[in-house]
């Protein structure tokens, strides 16, 4: 059985992955690269349609921006000693051998671990704080059926999930059973915190979907969605546990925007 803890992502192997291609290191971040490619492309197109000195200069500049976006290396940044390249984050890690991504987020909640565990153990509570989960119903002792709205496309997603391991009051682990686009394995840990009755809650989600090299940048960008969602859901869980309600501060008061 695959548990979410299998992929070790210690600080040591994080550092060793940097600067892998010597002098031509990547010093431009993934979002900036996409903008560079898009902006450069538009500039080249504009330049080529205007056959003049100015047009030619635009086309050259655009071409350079596209090149900068594709290679991820910017000479100006190198001269200035700047890098906007993405730093390695323990909150969003690519699994070895291109197997997918792992997201990890943590918050401290001012309630004893027992209370938090008991609430999380009842899967039917999930829609109360997980933003895109609409309905969860128990289908067996360890099994449940989940209905969600896709955070990317707004479409309806359904899957079955199974609790693979649980240890009161410190750990619950689960995994999805069928191949949906949201197939994942998850763990929530309730650990001690230094003050009073506080509990440190750590949510780990592992999405094992192999992607090709081409998809690497897109995958990194898409990875921010589960990373952000995990944090938002934990914050909503914190509010619900500490204040028994979730403050609605989003631009859509219903809390169901489609992004």
């Amino acid at each position: 059985m695959t548990t979410p803890q299998t992929a070790s992502t210690s600080k040591q192997n994080i550092s060793s992955r940097l600067h892998q291609d010597g002098t031509r290191t990547i010093n431009v971040g993934p979002m900036e690269r996409l903008i560079s490619i898009a902006g450069g492309g538009a500039l080249t197109y504009y330049g080529l349609r205007h056959l003049s000195l100015r047009g030619a200069l635009f086309a050259l500049l655009g071409g350079d921006l596209v090149y900068r976006g594709i290679t991820g290396h910017c000479w100006l940044y190198q001269v200035l000693g700047v890098s906007t390249a993405e730093k390695l984050r323990s909150t969003l890690v690519r699994l070895p051998d291109n197997q997918g991504i792992k997201v990890k987020r943590t918050v401290t909640i001012n309630r004893p671990a027992e209370d938090l565990y008991r609430f999380w153990e009842d899967v039917e509570n999930m829609p109360r704080f997980m933003k895109y989960i609409q309905e969860v119903s128990r289908t067996g002792e360890n099994r449940s059926h989940w209905v969600a709205q896709s955070p990317v496309l707004g479409t309806r997603l359904e899957w079955d999930s199974e609790v693979t391991h649980s240890q009161a009051p410190s750990l619950i682990a689960w995994r999805t059973l069928n191949q949906t686009s949201f197939a994942h394995a998850g763990t929530v840990r309730f650990g001690p915190a230094p003050y009073g009755n506080e509990t440190t809650v750590t949510l780990t989600l592992e999405f094992r979907q192999p992607v090709g090299q081409v998809g690497a940048i897109t995958e990194k960008l898409l990875g921010y969605i589960p990373e952000q969602l995990a944090l938002e859901d934990l914050r909503r869980f914190k509010q619900l546990m500490e204040a028994a309600e979730i403050a609605q501060s989003e631009s859509h008061p219903s809390g169901r925007s489609t992004m």
């Binding site: 600080k11 994080i14 550092s15 940097l18 730093k87 390695l88 984050r89 323990s90 909150t91 990890k104 987020r105 943590t106 918050v107 401290t108 650990g191 915190a193 506080e198 440190t200 809650v201 750590t202 934990l234």
Partner: peptide, 16 residues
């Protein structure tokens, strides 16, 4: 130079 210091410090201390 490798990691986002603020983010990692929060992550290492339960978000605090």
């Amino acid at each position: 130079e490798d990691v986002d210091v603020v983010e990692e410090l929060k992550q290492m201390t339960g978000g605090r």
